[in-house]
Design a protein around this nucleic acid. Sequence first.
DNA 1: CGTTACACCTGAGGGC
DNA 2: TGCCCTCAGGTGTAAC
Length: 291
Amino acid sequence: MPELPEVEITRRQISPKMVGRTIRSVRTTKPSYFFLTPPRELERRLTGRRVDSLSRHGKYLIAVLDDTSRLFLHLGMTGQLFTASARSVRLLSTTRGGALTPEKQDAFAPDIHTHLALGFEDESEDVLFRDVRKFGKVRWLPGGASDPRLDKLGPDALTVTGPLLFAATRTRKTALKTVLLDQEVIAGVGNIYADEALFRAKIRPSRIARTLTRKESNLLADEIRAVLLRSIETGGSSISDYVQPDGSDGAYQNERRVYARKGEACYVCGTLIKRIVLAARSTHYCPKCQK
DNA sequence: CGTTACACCTGAGGGC
DNA sequence: TGCCCTCAGGTGTAAC
């Protein structure tokens, strides 16, 4: 579900709920591969720690704690962070309707898909991590420790440059889109924004990566940054189930030009948008606009 | 080394 | 209503 823009919006909204606060309680569900650090250890390591910062690299969120240890989170396909009160308002108002009474808010409990709940000493709102498919990840890292998942990441996609893309594509015979999705090349681009950036750059997703010219690399890098920044501005893409941590929908889905528009008319030329499969991912493009 | 196929998990929606 | 199929914003690993 979430790509760089959705993760960045999550960071901006959750940061004020965590940073500067000390964790008093940690509640978890049973062990699963969602927990790279086992739940009981997580509870032990986090309790009593103050959160000093919350940053993002690609699709990862990284909290630095006051003992220099770190907590990293990945939202996977269906992960979402939110606070107890904001979410309770949304759930209750959408499932039952009507005005919220204090009783209804108190009655809210995270559902079975809420795998991590952090409570704070100042009794501010709990921060909750819900993830239906459990493709998300949470891991605690001791101070100074590294993690291969983080170490392998390429530069954040908001900083991508033409020369970097040009260099990264020289030895690759695979489809250009596959390279954009490779988090070791650039971190943060996923299926939606790969398709959207390629449309804006007028390049076919199936183009053999190594045939990209310097000029095209520059243009594509510009469009990647532009589409990500625009999506952040508009609150991200709420296509099937992504909502912002405050419960509101993003609006970038309304500015999509190709993603999930198979069979619809291209806004530029009217040609019908095609859907193909590349690297086992649904891929959308305009056969006329993208060469 | 580069590339692809598949696995992980749950739920929604379409066809019958 | 139920069953079966496909699809979904991601990524690690095995196998070619």
